Computed example of a mutant assay.
Amino acid sequence: MTFPTLLTTRLRLTEAQVEHAPAIFEILSNPEVVRYYGMDPFQELAQAENIVQHFKNNFDIKKGMRWAIINNQSNRFVGTIGLNNLAIGMKKAEVGFEIHPDFWRSGITSEALQAVLDYAFEELDLQRIGAVTFPANEASIGLLKKQGFMEEGKLRSYLFQNGQSHDALVFSLLREEWHIK
């Protein structure tokens, strides 16, 4: 399968590549960005290069897809969004994303998420998209709810960050809910 490019009004979603590693490092080394990410901030560029390779490996074995979000007008790298824990045979995946703070609350994440959900439900024929987030991550929770995701419950001590365990909230969106939004 060829990695799909997704186009929206303002964005081009394309496969995350090693050339994006410096921009990914800039984002994932920012403590504010990873505050609710479930990992500690990156300390060196090699970590970003490794995560790009991880994205590629997951795509090659059909376990995930990670798009670089590129602003059409400025050609600037905005962040990444993708499908994690992809199980095409089981018709499910989880969505995850991180965006440069310059683009927070601009509607870009919503636009990118909408494109990925359309692709997941229409092209991959998935039935369920899940999402896991920190209970305090109000921005992501608001975005998920706006897109029609429903809260399913709490996973106790599910995430480990900054030397301690944290609870997580689980959300999901089903294909039939997506079409009625």
Rank of each mutant, 00 (worst) to 15 (best):
M1G: 11
F3V: 02
P4H: 05
P4A: 04
T8K: 03
T8S: 13
R12W: 01
R12E: 01
L13M: 04
E15P: 01
H20V: 08
P22F: 04
A23H: 10
I24H: 06
F25H: 02
E26S: 11
P31H: 04
E32G: 04
V33Q: 09
D40K: 15
D40M: 10
P41L: 04
E44A: 07
A46K: 06
Q47N: 15
I51D: 15
H54G: 08
H54V: 12
I61F: 09
I61D: 03
K62I: 10
K63Y: 03
R66H: 00
I70F: 00
N72C: 03
S74A: 06
N75R: 11
I88V: 15
M90A: 11
M90L: 15
E94H: 06
E94R: 01
G96R: 08
G96W: 13
I99N: 07
D102G: 01
W104N: 08
R105G: 00
I108P: 02
T109H: 05
A112G: 01
L113N: 02
L117V: 15
L117A: 07
L117T: 07
F121P: 02
F121S: 00
L124E: 15
L124Q: 14
R128F: 14
V132P: 13
V132Q: 10
V132C: 07
A136V: 02
A136P: 04
A136Y: 08
A139E: 11
G142A: 13
Q147L: 15
E151L: 07
E151H: 10
E152M: 10
E152L: 14
K154Q: 11
L155E: 13
L155C: 12
Y158I: 07
Q161K: 10
G163W: 10
G163M: 14
D167A: 09
D167M: 14
A168H: 05
L169K: 01
L169P: 03
V170S: 04
R175E: 08
W178H: 12
K181G: 12
